[in-house]
């Protein structure tokens, strides 16, 4: 059964496409399911709320790097356009079909370079997200924007807190009253 048709799962608006594949994040009753599609396989990773110890979000310089790359390319294109365009247009001003064609080509070049720059800037700072359990620290794929990481923490936080509170309460109920203060959940 597909997850989007399964009432037990709710898709988080984080993840998406990346250079090596895609990743989607699904909240179930007691765990976070990460579905990674890489080449010809689909991999599943489950993080049970009772096991999660921490979420570590760390800023990266990827946005700055991409912006510098696109900015430099845009600047080079602008310089070339300023040098070539007046000569390419008859009389220095668009006056015919060919002139509009030249302007169209240059507009397309600026759009191809400028649009990713704009989108990259608007999407906000980049980051890496790691989930820590008692036995491992796992990096989450295709979750590279700080805003999306905040969304994940907002969605995940209350569920993990309540699952761990229930787990601790069950442990306290089943343990000796003397040990209640330091009770750990079963397992």
């Amino acid at each position: 059964m597909m997850l989007k048709k399964d009432a037990n799962f709710r898709r988080l608006k984080v993840g998406g496409l990346g250079p090596l594949g895609s990743a989607s994040y699904w909240l179930a009753k007691d765990h976070l399911l990460v579905v990674e599609v890489i080449s010809y396989s689909e991999r599943y990773r489950r993080f049970y709320f009772r096991d999660l110890q921490a979420v570590i979000v760390q800023q990266t310089g990827a946005r700055k790097g991409w912006n510098i790359g696109f900015g430099v390319a845009l600047l080079i294109a602008l310089v070339i356009a300023l040098v070539l365009l007046p000569g390419a247009l008859r009389g220095g001003f668009p006056s015919g079909g060919d002139d509009y064609g030249v302007i169209g080509i240059w507009s397309a070049i600026f759009l191809v370079l400028g649009l990713p720059l704009l989108v990259n800037t608007l999407r906000g700072p980049t980051c890496t997200v790691h989930l820590r359990t008692a036995v491992q620290t796992q990096k989450l794929r295709n979750l590279t924007r700080w805003r999306k990481a905040e969304l994940l923490v907002t969605e995940l936080g209350p569920l993990v807190q309540s699952a761990q509170a229930a787990s601790a309460a069950a442990s306290v109920a089943s343990s000796d009253p003397a040990d209640a203060a330091t009770a750990a959940p079963p397992g």
């Binding site: 096991d51 999660l52 110890q53 979420v55 570590i56 990266t60 990481a149 761990q164 959940p185």
Partner: peptide, 13 residues
């Protein structure tokens, strides 16, 4: 590097 650590109760178990 700017870092945010969100801890859950299981961290202290």
């Amino acid at each position: 590097v700017e870092t945010r650590v969100v801890l859950f109760p299981a961290f202290d178990w």
